[in-house]
Amino acid sequence: MPQGPDLTDRDQTRIAQQFIEAIPHARALGMRVDALGEGTATISMPWAEHLVGDPRSGVVHGGVVSALMDTCCGAAVMSHPAGPASTATIDLRIDYMRAARQGQRITATAECYHMTRTVAFVRAIALDEDDGNPVAAATGAFTVEG
């Protein structure tokens, strides 16, 4: 993701959205970049019938939350001022606090809170439309390349 002082926040979010849309799986899940900062990212996606993991409750599968968290954490690493050329997940742990409600949008916010020359440490949280009550939390380590 290119960065520079001549880019406004809106430009940067638009570029990030193009970046996300170039990822087939992120596009398939309908992910949208809501905000991007220095080592932080907010990405959301809509609920959909085909993503349901438990037909009795209509709750989306945990794997969907994993994909959103992983993408959001990766975007936070890429938006870090150190400017890594690319990144890959080393490990990611997700705690599922409660089920995301049927029909509601899920929003993940990630923060790359520490970066060395080789490793980025990230934490993230996922919310649905009841934003006082987190759906899931994640912590991960990512590679720093280039």
Partner: peptide, 11 residues
């Protein structure tokens, strides 16, 4: 996608 790998393992 890493999320797909995670989803596949969780499933």
């Amino acid at each position: 996608h890493g999320g797909v790998t995670a989803a596949f393992l969780e499933v």
